[in-house]
Nucleic acid binder design. Structure first.
Length: 553
RNA sequence: GGGCUUGUGGCUUAGCCAGGACAUAGCGCCGGGCUUCUAACCCGGAUGCCGGGGGUUCGAAUCCCCCCAGGCCCGCCA
């Protein structure tokens, strides 16, 4: 209901003042919404902002389209207080299944995320990408978009050639072990062996040339190695609660001729340069370095295939979103620029900064990383101890199930709560913390609400909210759809994480101060309605974050 | 060296793009609260020249310039 009310205020201010920007700010203690437009008008009309605010408050307060909204001026500020119908209507909406889902929209969105090279298991850096991408996907779906998610599989780069070469030499390990771990072992060993051995490096080059030319035997080797690794990665993603609609194999764009077609299109651009290599001169667009598309041996580099992939996406989707690490900023900007020159729909790239270990950056090649599997196992073990301490009456299996859900909540929330542009150092202590600013804290508030509702039995909905804790909680619930909207506009899923925490916090305060089951009559019904709305909103928020909304824990 | 980016109480962090009314929350610290709906909880307290310096503005954590510190990028890697 917040979206509707703030929309009405925006229109009324625009209509009354002729300004396009209503200068809306958070009202804080003064109201549900405020406007600083009097400052802007004061300059133009050369009068005091206090006088303008006063006049505006009088005029706006009398407008029929602002019925149910009280307008006042405090100094130069315009304050808007939403009437009691606001909370009633909001909570009436909030108890309905699927609360927060926005009306369906036109067009299809493609979100590419994770896309880690299949040369080893996903580590804690990769899953920052995964979790941001998956939360964005869920938020877009909640906001009414049709979304398809992609994992772009690099199955023909140099690193994969090294993997294929390594598997050829040392085999791919014990089939009882996860494929990504087996491939990592081969990859790490190969990198060690390749050091200072130019003849081995030229073997790798030859493999890449053969794959590009479509040599069936080498292609099969690459595909087998990639599949082995990808099987393990898919298992990890599944454990994290993430699934991709499609895995797009890079080599497909070479085999189906798209890459060749891209190169001939690019040949006609004025930025086109060809010496022993093929590259684009984007210096007019501010790029000092050449954007190389084809090596001197005739094989294409990643960039060429990426352009082909993105043109394909542009033809099939109305909006393209890529979640990429900050190390891809330059190449990403070059890609966007090139697609722009070609007149294709350009992707919006969401960059996130690196996750490092206290001892330095992670490296698959050197085997220096904390794998997502290890993280999940450790956190789940810790969660299991916690559940066992609290719920002695529960059997083994239910405790394991709760611990699993709690551990994924802790991991996902820790990753998504930090702004993507902030680099982070992985910290075991923080990862194993289930209190306060954590996923389990929010799950716990939800479980509490479930417990009350279960004990309450059937009740009639009522909407009388007078206590400050009730009002604060109801107002937060009313904002949920606006938060979903904002996440998709700003492409910042951490806003949802912050919102869910705030809501859980307000519910815990309410829970602490106001009895629900022991209250009576209309008060009991209203509070139960509020608990039900909270439960539903927390559930929807958690689901959008990709976290299980447990009924008990 | 050039480009991008981050710098907010002891630590972690929101707010910055779209400048406004006392800068957000968590950890840690100090002090309280479980015969009462799940204490993975709640309440209270201490702690901030918002990296530094200039500027724009009625008003700057937020915009501009310079400087300092960290991260990332600058490959016929991805």
């Amino acid at each position: 209901m917040f979206l509707e009310y703030s929309g009405r205020v925006t229109k009324a201010i625009q209509d009354k003042t002729g300004e396009s920007d209503p200068c809306l700010v958070d009202g804080g203690e003064h109201g549900d919404l405020a406007s600083t437009i009097a400052f802007a008008l004061a300059k133009r009309e050369r009068t005091s902002p206090v006088r303008i605010a006063l006049d505006l408050a009088k005029d706006l307060g009398a407008r029929p389209d602002l019925t149910g909204i009280q307008v006042s001026a405090t100094g130069p500020y315009l304050n808007f207080v939403f009437g009691e119908g606001y909370l009633r209507d909001s909570i009436r909406e909030a108890v309905k299944p699927g609360y927060g889902t926005l009306p369906a929209r036109e067009g299809r969105v493609v979100i590419e995320h994770t896309s880690a090279n299949p040369n080893g298991p996903l580590h804690v850096g990769h899953i920052r990408n995964t979790i941001i991408g998956d939360c964005l996907t869920r938020a877009f779906r909640k906001a009414g978009y049709r979304v398809e998610t992609h994992y772009y599989v690099n199955d023909m780069g140099r690193q994969i050639a090294i993997v294929a070469w390594a598997v050829d030499r040392y085999g791919d390990g014990d089939p009882g072990e996860k494929g990504d771990d087996r491939i990592a072992r081969a990859y790490i060993a190969a990198n060690r062996d390749l050091e200072g051995k130019p003849e081995a490096v030229s073997e790798i080059d030859r493999l890449m040339q053969k794959v590009e030319a479509g040599d069936p035997e080498v292609t099969k080797k690459f595909r087998t190695a990639v599949t082995t690794c990808l099987d393990g990665i898919k298992k990890t993603l599944l454990d994290l609660g993430v699934s991709h609609d499609r895995f797009i194999w890079e080599s497909d764009f070479v085999r189906n001729g798209d890459v060749g077609r891209v190169l001939s299109r690019i040949r006609r651009l004025e930025e086109y340069r060809e010496d022993e290599t093929i590259w684009l001169d984007l210096s007019a667009q501010g790029f000092k370095k050449p954007y190389i598309l084809r090596r001197s041996d005739g094989t294409t580099v990643y960039a060429a295939r990426d352009i082909a992939y993105h043109i394909w996406k542009a033809r099939n989707f109305s909006r393209i979103i890529d979640v990429l690490g900050a190390d891809h900023k330059l190449i990403g900007a070059q890609l966007v620029t090139t697609l722009g020159i070609l007149g294709e729909t350009t992707p919006t790239i969401v960059h996130f900064e690196f996750v490092s270990l206290p001892e330095g950056s992670m490296s698959t090649r050197q085997g220096k990383f904390v794998s997502a599997d290890a993280l999940m196992a450790e956190v789940a073990a810790r969660a299991y101890d916690e559940v066992t301490n609290r719920r002695t009456e529960l059997g083994e299996e239910p405790r394991r199930a709760i611990a699993r859900a709690v551990s994924i909540a802790a991991i996902r929330y820790d990753m998504v709560k930090i702004s993507p542009e902030k680099s982070m150092v992985f910290d075991w202590k923080e990862a194993l913390d289930f209190e306060r600013q954590s996923g389990p804290y929010i799950q716990y508030a939800h479980a509490r609400a479930c417990s009350i509702l279960e004990k309450a039995g059937p009740f009639a909905h009522a909407y009388e909210f007078g206590d400050p804790q009730e009002i604060a909680l109801a107002k937060a619930i009313a904002r949920f759809p606006a938060v979903v909207e904002r996440v998709t506009v700003e492409l910042r899923p951490h806003l949802l994480a912050a919102y869910a925490h705030e809501l859980a916090n307000l519910f815990n305060t309410f829970y602490q101060h106001l009895p629900v089951l022991k209250s009576e009559g209309r008060t009991r019904e209203s509070r139960l309605t509020l608990v039900s709305a909270t439960e539903n909103t927390l559930k929807e928020a958690l689901l959008t974050l990709g976290i299980d909304a447990l009924g008990t824990m």
